[in-house]
Amino acid sequence: MTNRLMLTLNGEPRELPSPLTVAGLLAAIGLDTRKVAVERNEEIVPRSAYHATHLASGDALEIVHFIGGG
């Protein structure tokens, strides 16, 4: 039986297969890594660390981008 990860993505609970890196997560969602930034448990994950950063159950992630603003 595959392990499941319980994550909070942008405030929403999500269940995903383990193991999973930040790079894997962004690819699964379909996001261009050059256009987003990721925070894991209130700490920035540098883009250079996406492949090496393994997610754990209970992690809270914020995935943000730029939108129109004044």
């Binding site: 379909g30 996001l31 256009k35 987003v36 730029f66 939108i67 004044g70």
Partner: peptide, 19 residues
């Protein structure tokens, strides 16, 4: 240009972005 920082809409990741 000024821009805001907001959560990505994870249910529509293919939506066009400002960039």
């Amino acid at each position: 240009v000024t821009v805001a920082v907001r959560r990505v809409n994870l249910s529509d990741a293919s939506a066009p972005m400002l960039q």
